[in-house]
């Protein structure tokens, strides 16, 4: 009894001290430049997102923002780097499907409780893209895929695109799917055009110029409803592929970051994303400010994504 009391006093004392300390931390925050870590190469879609999303935040927080890219093993190197940094809010990183997948793959000793997803920035729809004139339409493609081997192009093996390809395979009931990984979306489009691969799931900006030039056909958009600005493109549900796979991107910090710092960062990032430049950026891919959500909504969404991926974990990892 005596000991327990002592212990509780100690806990209380620590709590008071750490609370006081974190208040100081929050006032002092940021005490230096903030690093933003991307898990794919500079110049790609994620890099552009991060730069637009944090552009105004530097001014709001009165600090400089350094963009770094730690590629390799989907998000493995990014998370390893984050792990090596103190949980003080000076290291932000991209949170996307790759983050959840990497945690699941066991290549890093982290799970969803080790990070705090702060804000969501984009919900970009994906499209089914094939060589121009190759198929009559979405239904024709699905019929073909049920009885013929399909070569599907995408980015990193074990990444978001690969997982979506697997979900697509299972939803359609494809006879056989070979996943061919490329480093950049530009190469994927070229290989769809020259017929080396049959199909790819891409964001609009990744194939827009080739679609305009008539080099590729768009079979469907993987969303519950048709897009307002592209009403002619049917949804996956309409052509017999009931799956939704918008590409979600956001920012996060390490768990254990003082609560006040987390609040300050969340507020700053949300404000940064309300800027005109960010809204313009969202418009570019047919989105609006509904793509931007704060910590609570994004955290819940990340948890759902994390849990959903458990279902294909076995297939992906063969375990």
């Amino acid at each position: 009894m005596y000991r327990l009391m002592d212990g509780m006093k100690l806990v209380a004392a620590v709590a008071i001290v750490s609370c006081g300390a974190s208040q100081v931390v929050a006032d002092d925050f940021p005490s230096g430049p903030i690093e933003v870590i991307n898990n794919s190469k500079p110049g790609g879609g994620s890099d552009i997102f991060l730069r637009f999303a944090t552009e105004a935040a530097a001014e709001i927080l009165d600090t400089s923002i350094i963009h770094l890219s730690k590629t390799g093993g989907v998000a493995t190197n990014t998370l390893k780097y984050v792990q090596s940094k103190p949980a003080d809010g000076h290291t932000l990183f991209i949170v996307n499907a790759g983050t959840a997948l990497t945690m699941m793959s066991g290549s890093i000793d982290m799970d969803q409780d080790d990070i705090i997803p702060l804000v969501r920035g984009t919900v970009e729809p994906e499209f089914i893209v094939v060589q121009a004139g190759r198929f009559e339409g979405g239904a024709d493609f699905i019929e073909y895929a049920k009885s013929n081997p399909i070569k599907q192009a995408g980015t990193k093996v074990g990444g978001n695109a690969h997982v979506n390809a697997l979900i697509m395979k299972n939803t359609i009931g494809m006879a056989q799917q070979t996943y061919v990984p490329f480093e950049k979306s530009g190469e994927i489009v070229i290989n769809v055009i020259n017929g080396n691969v049959d199909v790819a799931l891409l964001n609009h900006e990744e194939f827009a110029s080739q679609a305009a030039a008539g080099q590729v056909d768009v079979l469907a958009v993987l969303l519950p409803e048709r897009l307002e600005n592209m009403p002619e493109v049917p949804t996956g549900h309409e052509i017999g592929l009931p799956m939704d796979s918008p590409q979600i991107r956001g920012l996060g910090v390490r768990a254990g970051t003082p609560e006040e710092v987390v609040d300050k960062l969340e507020a700053a990032l949300l404000e940064s994303m309300k800027s005109d430049t960010y809204v313009e950026y969202l418009k570019g891919s047919g989105q609006d400010l509904t793509s931007v959500t704060g910590r609570d909504a994004f955290g819940a969404e990340f948890k759902t994504m994390y849990d959903n991926y458990q279902s294909i974990k076995k297939e992906l990892l063969g375990g």
């Binding site: 996943y179 992906l316 063969g318």
Partner: peptide, 13 residues
């Protein structure tokens, strides 16, 4: 090279 981690077939492609 024998010390490299083996990966499941679907990842190794």
């Amino acid at each position: 090279t024998h010390t490299f981690r083996e990966v499941p077939p679907i990842l190794a492609q």
